[in-house]
Design a protein around this nucleic acid. Sequence first.
DNA 1: TCCATATTTCTATATTTGTCGAATCATTGG
DNA 2: CCAATGATTCGACAAATATAGAAATATGGA
Lengths: 112, 112
Amino acid sequence: MQADHVIRALSALAQEHRLAAFRLLVQAGEQGVAAGVLAEKLDVPPSSMSFHLAQLANAGLVTHRRESRSIIYSADYTAMNGLMGYLTENCCAGMSCSEDAACLPSPERKTA
Amino acid sequence: MQADHVIRALSALAQEHRLAAFRLLVQAGEQGVAAGVLAEKLDVPPSSMSFHLAQLANAGLVTHRRESRSIIYSADYTAMNGLMGYLTENCCAGMSCSEDAACLPSPERKTA
DNA sequence: TCCATATTTCTATATTTGTCGAATCATTGG
DNA sequence: CCAATGATTCGACAAATATAGAAATATGGA
């Protein structure tokens, strides 16, 4: 992951509503959350939510799929891992989180 | 570390020059780097560099001390750890970097 | 004290970002 | 095909951010 991409990811997360949305998506796991649900939960008008989700998508942090009338967003754990990797490698003093430590795609979890 | 603070930290890093500066500061370790040196290395006018360093300082990611005529900036590893901690806990799927994994303050290193 | 160096603050300006209603597009059910 | 639902795009505007020269503020040396 290169600096340019990292900056987009950081910018994407550096905003109240987007950080909150991303957190919800991470909690939701693979199944994801519909745009409208996010808008409602975060108390943000649909058009604004759409704007923010587009930014997250542009940064590669989320993916989306249509499901009937809804568009379901889900967190992209690989991208998040990439970001974390960059930060630990470049913005921490050398070592830290080991190779195998990573953002896991909520594998067998079903709680949230 | 709470969301509000996290957002300021992310915003601080979400900028080309600031990310680059922070990386240099992390590499430099405890001894830090003078504002002017950063400005020169990044090819940014002093006033602009000052602006960016103020943002990093405001986000708590760097500290500064005067040393003769220079003002030396250094990365605050504790703050960076806090940020990483928040991200792993809230933006990754549950577990990942274990408790002991962290951004170390370049302990006995002297290379850079 | 006077000058040079190192930085910051001030000021103005250009650019980017966030907001949100209205209009538009896609999908489903009747 | 038409209406209803869920979401995005458009457009206008407000607010925050980035840039950088000029002026102001420390510090150290002659």
